[in-house]
Amino acid sequence: MKRIVLAEIAHARSGDKGDGSNVGLIAYSSRGYEILCSEVTAERVKEHFSSICRGKVIRYEVPNLLALNFILHDSLGGGGTESVITDAQGKTHAQGMLQMEIDVPDDFESKRPAAVRGTMQV
């Protein structure tokens, strides 16, 4: 097994959903989707966002888009217009999700360049 960040096998987008956020996580391949399904459980996501998400994490599967959809309840400091935190709409949660580390088989070839992890030059 080797350890990679999610950004090497998936892309993502997030936004607000009531007092929580949603993170749509999309695999680059069918094999990547299977890995997401087994590795990126609601429990792991809750742990990854433990300082941000104060409520439950719910996971939905969207296999036709090779995607998982996560709802991070109570993660916006009170929700939409009432919140005073910087990211009151969960816009950055997708980028946070993609930094999660998971184990993949040694022969798994990640599709994406290393640029996924802060190697972009200014």
Binding site: H11, A12, R13, G15, D16, K17, N22, G24, I26, Y60, E61, V62, P63, N64, L65, A67, N69, I71
Partner: peptide
């Protein structure tokens, strides 16, 4: 695909005043 999942709740039950959409069919 990223936009399809934006602000998504339960993908099989996307409710609008005009219909209920199943995103797992797209």
């Amino acid at each position: 695909s990223e936009q399809l999942l934006y602000e998504m709740g339960n993908p099989t039950n996307y409710i609008t005043p005009d219909c209920v959409v199943d995103f797992t069919s797209i």
